[in-house]
Each structure stands twice: as structure tokens, then as C-alpha cells.
Simulated assay, not measured.
Amino acid sequence: MVLGEVTVDGRAGYHVEVCTPTPGVIATSGSLQVTVPHGLDRVDAADTVIVTGSSARDDVDPRVLAALRRAHEAGKRVASICTGAFLLARAGLLDGRSATTYWARTGEFRSAFPDVDLRPDVLYVQDGNVLSSAGLSAGIDLCLHLVRSDYGAATANAVARLVVAAPVRPGGQAQFVKTPVPPDDGTSLAPTRAWALERLHEPLTRDDLAAHARTSIRTLTRKFHAETGLSPLQWLLHQRVDRAQSLLETTTLPMPEVARSSGLATPDSLRQHLVRRTGMTPTAYRAAFTQAGGWGTGT
């Protein structure tokens, strides 16, 4: 749904194919049946391999595990959604790595794979070229993260709008929060977040946010965690880095102006936060994402 919506310069950003060990009609856990036309040879041809969740976590076809190992050994990007992490772990791809899975299966996962650094309270994790997401909805966040990594934040957020999903969220955000949908009683901090987004270039503080929300800093912090999974300052920093990425992709502003306009203040601060998030300097990021990129095919 997400990757199939990506277009760059009029062409598809990804060629997505679904495969299985034995092509044909596949029964699902419900009454629906799915026809999968491709075999595991598509894994060998792919640049990115995504494993979806399944109720069959113990009885895994050895051909699938072998295909995943070949993909990883060949340097391909390998990702899992929901309980698909169990397959990556059974293939040995998560040993010594950080990963996540559906929160309700974390006890089972820890017991089966003690060598994996399981992070049960996040949306998704990237450890090198191996990625994993929490439940099904978090798979959307992981796919948007892939799009952002390949084509930049502007393209990823455009796709998020197309599929009616939240903009690209940080992987460290909580899998679930106490108030997923804030009550429609005038107490949500959404107006304060919208107000802050218009003033990212200003040196906003928790006091400023609390004053706008007409609440105490303690209540502000509690509500931010409940509604976003982040503290007020973490949320502000994420939005500022997002703004900087968008400016680097879509403008030719000099680095001091990018830093100022995004609220990161100085080129040194811009560099520090961008390298931490993307592994790229601002100059390298601009060069990479003002050109069409991408890993190509996905299976």
C-alpha cells in the first residue's frame, strides 16, 4: 500500500512483488484466499526483502529461511513487519542485533531468541540493513521510513498523505500510548502542536508550550507522552530535523539558513542532529535527495 504509491519523476519508485515457497492459492487465517504468483526466486532478484507476520512462527518452511539468509549475505536490505521478526530471528539475522516485534508476542520472542536485543516499546528498529517493526500499523511507519531513507522526507510525507497515514514518525516512538485518539473535549494538545509547527524557527521551550496550552509543565509532559509517545522537547527536535530535511531536499538555502529556519540554530547543530538520524552530513543529504534514488525492487 505504501511502497506502491511512490512515484519519482513519473516512474514507480518501487516494483513490488509478493512471493511464497509454493506459488498458487494461499489460505489466510480467515476465509479469504490469496493468489500468490511468484516463487522464492524473486527474493534473489530483489533489493529489499520484507517478511510479513504470520501465525506460523515455529513451523517455518526451511526454504524461506534459506532465501532470507541468501538475501542478507548478498547485502540486501531485509525487513520484517509484526511477527515476521520471528522468521528473521530463526534465520539467524537478528543475533546480536536490536529488533522489535508485536508487543503481545515479546515474551514468546525473548524466550525463543535470547541473543536478540529486543526493544518491545518502539514502532520500528533499523540495525544496519536489517529492520523490524512492531504490529501491523507500525509496518506502515517502517515502510514510510524506507521511503524517507530512499527518496527523502518530502516524498515520504506526500505518500503518507496519499494513504491517509500519519507523517513519518520516529522509530523510537512508543508502540501504543494511553490515549491513541485524544478525547474530543477540548483537552487535546493538537492546537499547541500546530502552533509550535508554525514557530519551529523560534527558541521554543516547555514553558512556551505550556503557556499556549494553558496548563502546567507537568500536565503538558504527561499529555505529550499520552498523545505522541514523546516528551515535548523530543517532539520539537523531531519536527525540527524533519523541517531541515525538507529544506535540504526542496530548496537551495545555505546551511546557516536551513539551520535557522528549522530551529536548529547553527550549522554545527544541524550537522550533529542530521548525522545522528540519517548517518549523512547536510551536504551529503542534499546531494543524495535532490536526485532520484531508491533500492528499486521490493519482495
Rank of each mutant, 00 (worst) to 15 (best):
I140S: 04
A99P: 05
S132P: 03
L87C: 03
A138S: 14
D127H: 04
A134I: 03
N129P: 03
V116R: 05
Y102L: 12
E108Q: 14
A91M: 02
L32W: 07
A74D: 15
L93S: 07
R69M: 01
D41R: 15
I81Y: 07
D44W: 04
A46R: 02
A45D: 15
T28F: 06
T100H: 11
A27K: 14
S111D: 10
L88H: 07
G139P: 07
V36C: 09
S98F: 14
A66Q: 10
T101P: 02
A99Q: 04
H38D: 12
R105C: 07
S98M: 14
F86N: 00
L65G: 01
A91F: 01
T52K: 00
D121V: 07
I50F: 10
S133A: 13
R119S: 05
G96K: 11
D115M: 03
A66H: 10
S132Q: 08
R105F: 14
G96H: 09
S111C: 01
A112W: 08
C143P: 00
A67W: 03
R119Q: 15
L131P: 02
A74M: 07
V64D: 07
D115K: 12
C143F: 10
G135H: 05
D58H: 13
Q126I: 00
D117Y: 06
V64C: 12
P37H: 15
K76P: 02
I50Y: 08
L136S: 10
S133F: 05
R105P: 00
L142A: 04
E73A: 14
S29W: 00
T48H: 11
V64M: 13
S133K: 04
A138I: 06
G135D: 11
L94R: 09
E108H: 12
V64Q: 10
L65W: 03
V49K: 09
A67T: 03
A138Y: 04
K76Q: 14
A112P: 06
I50T: 02
T106R: 08
S98W: 12
S31Y: 13
A138Q: 02
A99N: 07
D59Y: 02
A66F: 03
I50A: 08
D141P: 07
L65H: 04
V125P: 03
G53S: 09
V64H: 08
D61L: 08
G107R: 13
V130F: 05
V130R: 07
L87A: 12
L131V: 05
L142Q: 04
P62A: 10
A104Q: 12
E108D: 14
L93W: 07
P114D: 09
L131T: 06
G53P: 06
S132N: 03
S55P: 02
S54N: 04
R119F: 09
P120V: 01
D115C: 02
D117I: 01
L118N: 06
A66E: 11
V125I: 15
S137V: 11
P37F: 12
T52R: 00
R42G: 00
D47Y: 03
G135N: 09
E73H: 13
A45Y: 09
L94P: 04
F109H: 02
R69D: 01
G92C: 05
G128L: 11
R57V: 08
R110A: 14
